[in-house]
Design a protein around this nucleic acid. Structure first.
Length: 1036
RNA sequence: GCCCGGGUGGUGUAAUGGUAAACACGCUGGCUUGAGGUGCCAGUGGGGGAAACCCUGUGGAGGUUCAAGUCCUCUCCCGGGCACCA
């Protein structure tokens, strides 16, 4: 059979027989027609497929290769499913709120609403030029008030369910973007967006209580068999569940009257001695030692064995500074263990007295100090003229290492303000609490007692007052080996027990230093551990009654568990810490397999694995695994602990101090507190303003827009203020897939029936970088909305298909600064969209990171030109000499391409098409052959397939045609080349029937001279024959 | 440190335990052409050989098997995630 001479045909002068392949002439044409006919608009009926890609934020740089990859993959997949007969929805939208859009607008000096519009227009032009068949009738935009109305509505549902709350806290703050960030947005201690090192900032913030869904988010992963394990694992690690126990370590305050070293008195009483803490309590203006809480407090303190002085100060109705100070210094005994407590004006007296005393005392506690008349808003009182408010704060700090100020919230503004100022000047701990009566004037003031005397627990197992330090551990089996306790610098115990900590000033200093360190410094791996022991307090190990020292060290994190841990020999960090500070260690585990444990016993090696307990009293001999169960049960029985679960997941910091985001629909009313915006008033529109730069103060730029901020309280109609923080970038994208099912609904976020029809999303293409951000957030929202009965499915995405990133030619990330960005628009311009699409798929497996190589793209272009030529040869199409081989290859290719698309192996699907084209080349091919080739090609090169398809006379788009079926019988070969091995080495191949029997196969194989050569003089021991695969002689 | 991936020609990569390198880029030679390009044919892991053919070869070392890129053990390197998480 002669090959058709292409050149002759081309030169024969027949028109249109061989028009050149020119993508520019066909791609735009078909794109317009598809759009006009709306062939990708999904109808809400029939067998459905919901194919989703992560919608982009429309950046000023336009879309890049990183966008193209998932879009094309999703496009191939959805075109394929459509041809398979599924009503396929492949929608698109714009995630246009957020930092990147706002930063771009700021840089260009254009309002974000304007730049966003322009960027969307450009991005839309791009994806259309790539021939991606999105259903534009469902286009959505998160910045459209009709859209974000429902984002705000969902927020209100969270609020109503108690899952959105406002709190002040130390949060991650990006000084570059001038906004707070969620934990998920901090990568390696840096801002996910701009790479700036994140700081900590104390801010009032809105949070979404994602931690309430930690367990559900974890459990839900089990119902996602079609998600890659890697993605599930990463979410699992992020949620970070650890199962263990929470153990109560009762506090043991070393009794002041009874230092550990000295024996009790013969009569059993606790006689005051020097060296113990004592209190000097000073009443205030018009007060008396016999009034208010003072007698009660004195009795309570004395019950606990403290010496208490409550002098009756002279002339309390008309007090004079020097008279009262001199009285105290003359009549009262003060030493280095005295804690001076003042109430109201007594505070001023206390400070003046201490200043004059001029030696160290143990501490200074001020209860609602009298306000400096010079302080703005203070009302002049009669005593003011007799006192001066000039203090030597440095002197006071020096003489009173522990300083605490108690303020009463019921007090008016000036007093609270003054106490804040005073606490700063004194560098004192400020505790705000409510007394039972105003200004600590009740008969009993338990709060005051608590501050003065942290509860002292008798050192008996589990018989304490249930207070103490709670410690979380996953290794209860090492509890008998605990020799010390470590608490985080932020642990409340330190401040609560300040008066009982004899080295409090040293401790405070350490805490101050820890605060200054950034998270990066604090968690640096090889950093040497530091810490300070809290002297004067100990805890009791509930399992053996041992008294353990408490250390404060910044390797304990307030964020995890309970902010406290016990230290033992079977943990590398604990052991390192203990060795540094010469804290004794006790080895209580040995390897179960009986290996030499002398190195472990001598602390030359840290044994952290499970083992067998010894040195552990009644638990000796248990395996670690058994011990965890037994000891936990023991703790539960003794009410000293409980099995608990701890998660690494933190609540989602949900406010941003930026302009370009959804306003949080909340109103702050001075009378009613937090009031949600009534649903009928949604959306709360983002005001259109000229100035929207971030302020950097922790306030949103919206706060400056008086007109917008000032509103009537929906509750009491009084004056109120709007919440001025906006939502994070991830808000709109947390539910967008729901909106696609019913994008124009005015009454609800989406119609129930439509959601039931389309959900869940069948296939979700996206990047791995969103695994613990968008993907986790949207699962959370969906689970919540499902629990609320709003969304019919619990998990939104049946299948997740991650893609690898596309690197530049140099193997680096594409970036403007490196100048290695490959612009898809340029490639389309040179090679056409079909070539770009196929080459991008051909570069490598979809899930793998690949480097762009401009060199190779010509191969795909050549392939397409080959198809173009094949399809253009028309006269050979009428009569074809039946070629069984070609027919078989076509069926094999149909099977291969179908399987590959279903399994997202696009690269091998492309090569299968190339093989088919190579086979067809030079053979006579029929119209039917070409038709099948074009159908297989259609998802990959939609423009060319369409053009050639129409050339064949078809009136309806190829993308609505039916996907070809393969005949399994024809897709299999009857005869195959089978390798003949001798001792596993290939010596020849024979062409035999797949159905050949073992005897036939052996005959064929032995007939080969090559085989005979290697069999000469050998004994054939075994003969292996796997039909269609292999023949192997095992010889000696 | 812990948990995942992954190491195959000059390059991108392909191989249900069954002929390693399909498909493509690049390279070499040839045909076509006035020329260039396109297109087509042949070759292209390494070593030996005129050739037939032989040896060797999937990061490294062992092992299982008639047969290992593929399964198992150890180890090295690269990429990703988590990370003082108790």
């Amino acid at each position: 059979m002669a090959r058709p001479n292409l050149r002759c045909k081309f030169q024969s002068g027949k028109q249109n027989l061989m028009k050149q392949y020119n993508p520019k002439l066909i791609e735009g044409k078909w794109q317009k027609l598809w759009a006009k006919q709306g062939i990708y608009a999904a109808r809400d009926k029939g067998k459905k497929k919901f194919v989703l890609i992560e919608f982009p934020y429309p950046s000023g740089e336009g879309l890049h290769m990183g966008h193209l990859r998932p879009y094309v993959a999703g496009d191939v997949y959805s075109r394929f499913q459509r041809m398979k007969g599924f009503e396929t929805m492949y929608p698109m939208g714009w995630d246009a709120f957020g930092l990147p859009a706002e930063n771009y607008a700021l840089k260009k000096g254009v309002h974000p609403s304007v730049s966003t519009k322009l960027n969307i227009k450009n991005a839309k032009r791009q994806v259309q030029s790539w021939g991606v068949g999105f259903d534009w009738s469902r286009e959505i935009n998160t910045t459209d008030p009709e859209y974000y109305k429902w984002t705000q509505w969902i927020f209100l549902q969270f609020y109503k369910a108690g899952l959105a709350y406002e709190a002040a806290g130390l949060i991650n703050w990006c000084p570059q973007d001038k906004t707070g960030l969620a934990n998920e947005e901090v990568i390696d201690g840096k801002c996910e967006r701009c790479g700036t090192v994140v700081e900590k900032k104390e801010l009032r913030q809105w949070y979404l209580k994602i931690t309430a869904y930690a367990e559900k988010l974890l459990e839900g992963l089990k119902n996602l068999p079609e998600w890659p394990d890697q993605v599930k694992l990463q979410q699992e690690n992020w949620i970070g569940k650890s199962e263990g126990a929470e153990i109560d370590f009762p506090l043991f305050v070393i009794p002041a009257a009874e230092p550990e070293s000295s024996p009790p008195q013969a009569d059993g009483s606790r006689r005051p001695k020097s060296g113990m803490t004592n209190f000097l309590i000073l009443h205030g203006y018009t007060g008396s030692a016999g009034r208010n809480f003072i007698p009660w407090l004195k009795t309570e303190l004395e019950k606990q064995g403290y010496k208490v002085q409550t002098p009756e100060l002279p002339n309390s109705d008309d007090p004079k500074e020097s008279e009262q100070v001199d009285y105290i210094l003359k009549k009262c005994s003060i030493d280095e263990n005295t804690i001076i407590v003042g109430h109201s004006l007594g505070c001023i007296v206390a400070m003046k007295a201490l200043q004059k005393y001029g030696k160290s005392v143990k501490g200074l506690i001020l209860l609602d100090a009298a306000v400096d008349p010079a302080f703005s808003g203070a009302t002049p009182r009669p005593f003011h003229k007799n006192f001066s408010w000039n203090f030597d704060y440095e002197r006071l700090k020096k003489y009173a290492p522990a300083r605490t100020i108690l303020s009463d919230l019921k007090e008016g503004e000036p007093r609270v303000g003054y106490l804040k100022t005073l606490s700063k000047k004194l560098d004192a701990q400020l505790i705000t609490g409510r007394s039972t009566e105003n200004h600590f004037t009740a008969e009993r003031e338990p709060l005051v007692l608590e501050i003065l005397t942290p509860p002292s627990i008798p050192p008996h197992q589990g018989e304490g007052r249930g207070e103490g330090i709670k410690i979380f551990t996953t290794r209860v089996d090492t509890l008998p080996g605990a020799t010390f306790i470590v608490i985080a610098p932020e642990h409340p115990l330190i401040q609560n027990f300040a008066s009982r900590i004899s080295n409090f000033s040293e401790v405070s200093k350490y805490i101050e230093e820890a605060k200054k360190k950034t998270d990066i410094v604090r968690s640096a791996r090889d950093k040497e551990k530091t810490g300070v022991e809290l002297k004067g307090v100990k805890v009791v190990n509930p399992v053996n009654g041992e008294k353990l020292p408490i250390w404060v060290a910044d390797y304990a994190l307030m964020d995890f568990g309970t902010g406290a841990l016990f230290g033992d020999a079977h943990d590398e960090r604990d052991q390192a810490f203990a060795k540094k500070y010469k804290i004794p260690l006790k080895v209580t585990l040995k390897p179960a397999n009986g290996r030499d444990d002398s190195k472990i016993r001598n602390l030359e090696e840290v044994f952290i694995d499970d083992g067998v307990l010894y040195n552990s009293g009644e638990f000796d001999g248990l395996s670690s695994e058994e011990a965890r169960k037994v000891i936990t049960k023991w703790l539960v029985d003794k009410k000293s602990g409980r099995a608990t679960v701890s998660y690494k997941l933190r609540d989602w910091v949900f406010s941003r101090q930026r302009y370009w985001g959804e306003p949080i629909p909340i109103i702050h009313c001075p009378a009613c507190g937090i009031v949600p915006v009534p649903e009928k008033d949604l959306p709360v529109r983002l005001p259109n303003v000229k100035k929207y730069e971030p302020t950097g103060t922790g306030e949103s730029p919206l706060a400056a827009i008086d007109k917008w901020v000032k509103v009537k309280c929906p509750n009491c109609k009084g004056p109120a203020k709007r919440e001025t923080n906006t939502m994070p970038q991830w808000a709109g994208s947390s539910w967008y897939y729901l909106r696609y099912t019913d994008p124009k609904n005015k009454n609800e976020l989406a119609d129930d029936e439509l959601m039931k029809h389309w959900l869940p999303v069948d296939v979700y293409f996206g990047g791995t970088e969103h695994t613990t951000l968008h993907l986790l957030y949207s699962r959370f929202w969906n689970l919540f909305l499902h629990d609320q009965g709003i969304v019919p499915v619990s998990e939104p995405y049946t299948k997740r298909v991650p893609h690898g990133i596309i690197l530049a030619e140099d193997g680096e990330k594409m970036s403007k600064s490196r100048g290695n960005v490959v612009n898809p628009d340029e490639i389309v311009n040179i090679y056409g969209a079909d070539t770009l699409r196929m080459y991008e798929l051909f570069l490598g497996p979809h899930g793998q990171t690949v480097s762009w190589h401009s060199r190779g793209i010509i191969g795909v272009r050549r392939f397409l030109e080959k198809v173009w030529r094949l399809a253009s040869i028309k006269e050979s199409s009428t009569s074809r000499i039946q070629s069984d081989k070609l027919e078989s290859i076509i069926h094999k290719t149909i099977k291969k391409v179908t399987d590959d698309i279903e399994n997202f192996r696009f690269n091998t699907a492309v090569s299968a098409l190339m093989i088919l084209a190579n086979e067809m080349e030079g053979k006579q091919v029929s119209k039917n052959d070409i038709t099948r080739l074009l159908k297989l090609l259609a998802p990959f090169a939609p423009h060319m397939a369409e053009d050639l398809w129409r050339e064949l006379g078809n009136k309806v788009s190829i993308h609505l045609a039916q996907w070809p079926e393969h005949d399994p019988a024809l897709a299999k070969d009857e005869f195959v080349n089978v390798a003949v091995q001798i001792n596993g080495r290939v010596r020849d191949t024979v062409r035999i029937a797949v159905a050949a029997s073992e005897a036939e196969a052996r005959n064929f194989a032995e007939a080969s001279s090559q085989v005979q050569k290697h069999l000469v003089g050998k004994q054939v021991g075994k003969f292996i024959y796997i039909p269609g695969k292999i023949i192997n002689f095992v010889v000696k």
